[in-house]
Design a protein around this nucleic acid. Sequence first.
DNA 1: TAATGATATTTGTATGTGCAAACAAAAATG
DNA 2: CATTTTTGTTTGCACATACAAATATCATTA
Lengths: 154, 154
Amino acid sequence: MKNEENTVVCEEKSATRFSACLLFSANALARAITAIGDEEFGRFGLCYSHAYMLCEVVAQPGITPSELSETLYLTPSTITRLVEKLEQKHYVRRESEGKRTLIYATAEGDAIQPEIAQAWERVGTRYSEVIGKNDVCQLTQQVFKAAKSLGKTS
Amino acid sequence: MKNEENTVVCEEKSATRFSACLLFSANALARAITAIGDEEFGRFGLCYSHAYMLCEVVAQPGITPSELSETLYLTPSTITRLVEKLEQKHYVRRESEGKRTLIYATAEGDAIQPEIAQAWERVGTRYSEVIGKNDVCQLTQQVFKAAKSLGKTS
DNA sequence: TAATGATATTTGTATGTGCAAACAAAAATG
DNA sequence: CATTTTTGTTTGCACATACAAATATCATTA
C-alpha cells in the first residue's frame, strides 16, 4: 500500500479540462466500450464492426456496400475493407451486378450467427453492469440521436 | 423519384438493429464528432488529440507520458506517438530524467495556443448547433461519466 | 551490494478508418 | 446516338490507436 494509491482515491480519474468537451468524451467512451466489444467478438476472430456487418448481411442477403454504409454509419471505402476481411474469412461472398456489388453470407457466415448474438449479449451485459442498466438505455438513445444528427450534416 | 426514396423518407437514417447498442452508437458519435474536430484543428495541421495534448503540456510543463495517458485516456504507447508528432512539428520537446520523460512546450507550441482555443470553441459551437445546446451539456456529462466508469475497470 | 521485482517509456507490428483519386457503369442531356 | 454527368465501388495512401515485447531505470530485498 503506497501513498499514491491513497491520494489517488480522492481524485481518481476525475474531470479534466477536457471532460466538458463532447469530442473528447465521445472518443473516450468509444475506445473504452470498443475494448469490451473487441474482446468478446475477438473470441472468434472478429472485431465488432465485422460482426455487425455480418449480422446485416445475413439479415439482408444481397445488400450493397452503399446500403451497408448507411446502416453502419461507415464510409464506403471502409465497407469495402470490412467486406474484404469477411470474404477472406469465408463468411461472405461478393457478386458483381453492373456497377453495384451484392453481398451474401456464406454457410459459414450463417453458422456463426448464434455465436455473434451471444457475444453481443455479453457486451451489453458487461457495460450495463458498469454503467448501470437504467442509464444505459437512456444514454444509448441520446448518443445515437446525436450521432444521427451529426451524421446527416457531414 | 423511386419507390425506395419514398419509403426511405419515413425512416431516414432512423434506428437500425444496432442503434440500441451503445457500442455501435458510441463509435458512430465519436466518428461524426471527430470529423468536425479534425476539420477545425486540421486548419493548422493538427488532429484533435494532438491539440488536446499540446494544451495539457502547455498547462503542465514537464508533464510525463503516463500522466498524459491518464488525463487523455490514451495508452502510453499512443502518447509516445503523439508526442513524436508534436516534437516533429516543433511544438514540444522531450527531456529525459531517469526513467521518466518530461515534456515541455516550445515557444511555437505556446504561440499557437490561442488558435487551438479558437478551434476548440468552433468545434463546440458546431456540434451544439446540430445537437442542441441544452442536450450537449447533459449528454457530455453522461458520456464522460460512462467513459470514466468503463475506463477504471479495464 | 548484488539480485530481483516493479515502473516508465519506447518500439514493432497490426488494424480500423477516412479522404481523395481512380475506375466502372448507369443516367441524362445535347 | 454520342457525350457528359452522376452514381457505386474500389484502391492508394495516411493516420490514430492499441497490444505485446523490448529497454531502461528505480525500488526492494536477501
